[in-house]
């Protein structure tokens, strides 16, 4: 892994207006001032519970939805300003794999058409199209027999492989994996995850791995960012995050994680996180986690903690670690 960022996200914000009958009632602050970098060749994990904005981050980076403000650089180029050929180049180099394989493939197209459509559109030189598609299918563990079948003839895992073959056809460098296995069966999970890891090793892909499942994120990622209500609360190398979580929210998440080991779970101390995430329309002032935080202090209710580096490579947004300077 070279320490060179391929993606740089700066102060990204995405607010969705909430429409009343006549006026905009307020904004859902789905992503609120998020910054991070992804190094070439690494897997950057983004975890958080539903509604924390992790998927919105991915879609904004890929310019599938328009950001409210902030900037994203891909290989040094400002993504939101790309036009014409440069935009096409970006659309080719940066890909996304969706969560739901049942909806991400057009049911009216055969596997061959699904994979070839973007290839033709981008005029990628492939030689014999049939051989090319078969080659891709074999890479993802499928074969020539599947060429002219429709998506509904496949299982979820196979569909996800087809989606992956379509991505590989574009020869991308950066791939967003938006909960790629959460719709799949447990026994199929590992097949897809291992394939993604092998492909990364062979082809040097950079992944942004999004999931609500901490265990899977840990397996896949080199570094992990934890999101809560539109904000990143902690960024740390994968192992460190699990060994010593810093932010109280990360600690609570880890404590709540069901561990497939009955002896351990019967011994582990039960840290319970009270309450539920508040609405992102009117997030609490100060630190957004303070109403549920066991360590909440006066400053937490008043002032938002900045994301600060506490040791090399570890960032946390919590007043417990920021020296209460503000």
């Amino acid at each position: 892994m070279t320490q060179q960022p391929i993606i740089k996200v700066q102060n990204l914000k995405k607010y969705f207006p909430v429409k009343g009958i006549f006026f905009t009632k307020g904004y859902v602050k789905a992503v609120d001032d998020v910054s991070f970098e992804i190094m070439r060749g690494e897997t950057f994990g983004l975890v958080g519970e539903s509604g924390c904005g992790k998927t919105t981050v991915a879609r904004t980076i890929l310019r599938l939805i328009k950001a409210t403000s902030g900037r994203v650089f891909f290989e040094g180029k400002d993504v939101f300003k790309l036009k014409g050929d440069e935009l096409l180049w970006f659309r080719r180099k940066a890909q996304i794999m969706f969560q739901d394989p049942y909806s991400s493939l057009n049911p009216r197209m055969t596997v061959f058409e699904i994979i070839m459509e973007p290839v033709r559109f981008h005029k990628i030189e492939v030689g014999d199209p049939e051989d090319f598609v078969v080659g891709l299918l074999e890479t993802v563990g499928m074969n020539r027999d599947h060429l002219y079948r429709f998506p509904h003839e496949f299982s979820g895992g196979q569909r996800q492989r087809i989606a992956l073959a379509r991505i590989l056809a574009m020869k991308p460098e950066f791939i967003v994996l938006d909960e790629p296995t959460s719709a799949l069966d447990v026994s199929v999970h590992a097949q897809i995850l291992n394939m993604l890891r092998d492909l990364q090793r062979e082809r040097g892909f950079t992944y942004l791995f999004i999931s609500h499942d901490l265990a899977v994120v840990k397996y896949m990622s080199h570094r992990i960012a934890v999101m809560y209500l539109g904000k990143i609360v902690e960024i740390a190398p994968s192992d460190k995050l699990f060994e010593e979580p810093l932010h109280p929210y990360t600690q609570a998440l880890l404590a709540a994680l069901p561990i497939p080991d009955p002896e351990y779970t019967r011994k582990k101390p039960k840290i319970e996180i009270r309450g539920e995430p508040p609405s992102p329309i009117n997030p609490p002032p100060g630190c957004r986690f303070h109403p549920r935080c066991p360590h909440a202090m006066k400053i937490c209710k008043e002032k938002e903690p900045p994301l600060t580096q506490v040791e090399p490579g570890r960032f946390v947004a919590c007043w417990l670690y920021t020296g209460r300077k503000g």
Partner: peptide, 26 residues
């Protein structure tokens, strides 16, 4: 709202192609 429409957008297909090839047939 189907993801394949978003997938088509993610690879850069034009709105016309998306409307007539991905939405209309469905």
């Amino acid at each position: 709202e189907n993801l394949y429409v978003e997938a088509a957008r993610a690879v850069g297909l034009s709105n016309r192609t998306i409307m007539f090839k991905h939405i209309l047939p469905n």
